[in-house]
């Protein structure tokens, strides 16, 4: 299985409908970009802090979301410091941090299955030319096959290591792709045999 980023909980933030959370996130990010001022950013920061507090999340959760982008933040801060001043540098980095934290709040408090269900419910209102069943099939199949692809990757790497080829990216990728394409043909036949399409 693939683990998602969801943090179990039963708070008001967890219980809020995923669609509402998504809408709030879109409104927040739009406002922060359109009304590009310090008071608005401060308000957004406070809003996100309250969200984390209400969701009973620990500072570690926020830290984990920001850690991968810290180097980019540092480069950006120094560049703005050189090009403009310390205020603009702080503003730009803080705006990124707040938006990333707001979006992560949605991810941490909403199960992937809730979002997939929400997406499917939303697709019911989509125009008729949207191939809803095919989108649903593709999403389900990818989620099912990611762990299997990871296993195959490890198998192929072990096999190529025995040949002394595990340092060659091409020797790892070609079997992975060819094997997957062959599997895809079998899977397509299996689906057609069950008359799903």
């Amino acid at each position: 299985m693939i683990t998602d980023l969801y943090v179990r909980g039963d708070t008001v933030v967890h219980r809020t409908h995923p669609g509402v959370k998504l809408l709030l996130l879109l409104v927040l990010s739009t406002i922060v970009f359109v009304i590009d001022t310090w008071p608005v950013l401060a308000l957004a920061t406070a809003f996100v802090f309250v969200g984390y507090w209400l969701a009973h999340l620990k500072p570690g959760h926020a830290w984990r979301a920001l850690r991968p982008v810290l180097i980019i933040f540092a480069i950006l801060f120094l560049a703005q410091l050189y090009l403009a001043d310390v205020w603009l540098a702080t503003y730009v980095v803080l705006r990124f941090a707040v938006l990333i934290l707001a979006a992560t709040l949605l991810t941490l408090t909403t199960k992937v299955s809730e979002l997939v269900d929400g997406l499917m419910a939303g697709l019911a209102y989509a125009p008729a030319w949207v191939p809803r069943e095919k989108i649903a099939l593709a999403i389900a199949m990818t989620i099912r096959f990611i762990p299997r692809l990871r296993d195959q990757f490890h198998d192929i790497r072990d096999a190529q290591r025995a040949r002394g080829l595990d340092r060659s990216i091409v020797a790892l990728l070609v079997p992975l792709v060819v094997r997957t394409l062959k599997d895809a043909d079998d899977i397509a036949r299996a689906i057609e045999a069950r008359s799903i399409d």
Partner: peptide
């Protein structure tokens, strides 16, 4: 489809990153 699954919260980007936050970063 891959980008959609990342947005839905699966940690599929290298380094185990995923979720909506990815789409608000500088890159």
């Amino acid at each position: 489809l891959f980008v959609l699954l990342v947005a839905l919260g699966l940690p599929l980007l290298s380094g185990g990153r995923g979720g909506f936050g990815v789409f608000f970063g500088p890159t």
